[in-house]
């Protein structure tokens, strides 16, 4: 079981409030991603749950039991660190065995679990090596192995993929998702990469400056961002946010149109501009369009076959039901 409840949890470093009081409910078996720009407090929040930082006020409950004052070791959680934090002087086998040894588990059970974890993570051939002899991806697997053998109530991941190269990152992303499907254990995952958040999460928590901006499933966040910040943060390429007269026509301070919701039309259209950079990905083409009267270029996602080049004139028409409207406070308008 891994139901985690945060009630009015607050964190101050000295006089600086990094996390104003917040409430959050994480259900058993859920894959929750904390996402936000760097310095938004997502890692601090994770460390509060882990018990590596003391809360300044409020309460944390794990499976209904108060955990606020419990030391990290007693919370029944496992954590995978950004730097992997493997014990350099122990072999892979001993690294994985360490939490079980600390729990005083009998040797047979330890061996059984190590074998099972090693097989699941493709580490069987490396059990007697030291972490220093492993590649980044393998170290990452060892760190995960060390976490799963404990059969914790929940897994905590602190930006676990940020030290890997792009290709490995995609692979590990899939592996972690698959692990979640098999284990069906609660996972809390911190990242600054919204692609990781969208692809892995059951529930995304978007944070900015310690404040929860929105909580919801990836599609909810994509379809109905609650404010301009979430609208701009979720989705790739970024949503086009337009202010001024064009927004005024829709009775809003700001309107947002995702690049994929702009159609290229032969003539007319709401926006007319010239193509700046065209990025051809094969399946899609992204055009960066300089529109008269707008300061920022607009991004358009078009079919890969559309052939327009630098300097060409382009006409754009947004899909009417896909326009997001925001008021003067940046909040979504119904």
């Amino acid at each position: 079981m891994g139901r985690i409840t945060l009630e009015k949890v607050q964190k101050k470093f000295g006089d600086v409030e990094v996390i104003p009081p917040l409430d959050l409910e994480i259900d058993d078996g859920e894959f929750v991603v904390f996402v936000g720009p760097s310095g938004c407090g997502k890692s601090t929040l994770l460390r509060l749950i882990a018990g590596l930082e003391d809360v300044s006020a409020g309460e944390i409950r794990i499976d209904g039991q108060p955990a606020t004052d419990k030391p990290p070791a007693k919370r029944g959680l496992a954590m995978v660190f950004q730097s992997y934090a493997l014990y350099p002087h122990m072999s892979v086998r001993k690294n994985i065995a360490f939490p079980m040894k600390m729990a005083g588990m009998d040797q047979e059970e330890q061996d059984r679990r190590i074998a099972k974890a090693a097989q699941a993570l493709n580490l069987t051939d490396y059990l007697d090596r030291r972490p220093g002899q492993l590649s980044g991806g393998q170290r990452q697997r060892v760190a995960i192995g060390r976490a799963i053998v404990r059969e914790p109530a929940a897994f905590l991941f602190d930006e676990p993929l940020s030290n890997l190269d792009a290709a490995l990152r995609v692979g590990m992303r899939l592996e972690i998702s698959e692990l979640h499907n098999t284990l069906e254990t609660t996972m809390i995952y911190v990242t600054h990469d919204q692609v990781e958040a969208m692809t892995m999460a059951d529930k995304i928590v978007v944070l900015r400056a310690g404040v929860i901006e929105q909580v919801g499933s990836p599609l909810e966040l994509y379809r109905e961002p609650r404010n301009v910040f979430v609208a701009g943060f979720i989705g790739s390429p970024k949503m086009n946010l337009i202010t001024g007269p064009s927004a005024g026509q829709h009775g809003a301070q700001t309107i947002g149109i995702r690049p994929e919701h702009l159609d290229v039309v032969p003539s007319g259209g709401t926006f007319t501009g010239t193509v700046g950079v065209a990025e051809h990905l094969g399946s899609d083409t992204f055009f960066h369009v300089h529109v008269d009267g707008l300061e920022e270029p607009m991004t358009v996602r078009a079919d890969g076959e559309v052939s327009l080049h630098h300097g060409d004139t382009i006409h754009l028409e947004p899909q009417p039901d896909k326009i997001h409207r925001f008021d003067a406070d940046g909040l979504r308008m119904a």
């Binding site: 882990a50 018990g51 590596l52 030391p71 990290p72 070791a73 007693k74 959680l77 496992a78 954590m79 660190f81 950004q82 730097s83 934090a85 493997l86 014990y87 350099p88 002087h89 122990m90 360490f98 939490p99 600390m102 729990a103 060390r146 404990r150």
Partner: peptide
């Protein structure tokens, strides 16, 4: 690295075990 000590704490090591098994060997 401090993260290793935190990892030991997460892994259920008491302060004594943290010193014996992790800090001292390093």
């Amino acid at each position: 690295p401090g993260e290793i000590l935190e990892a030991a704490r997460m892994d259920g090591a008491s302060l004594r075990n943290e010193i014996i098994y992790v800090l001292t060997p390093m």
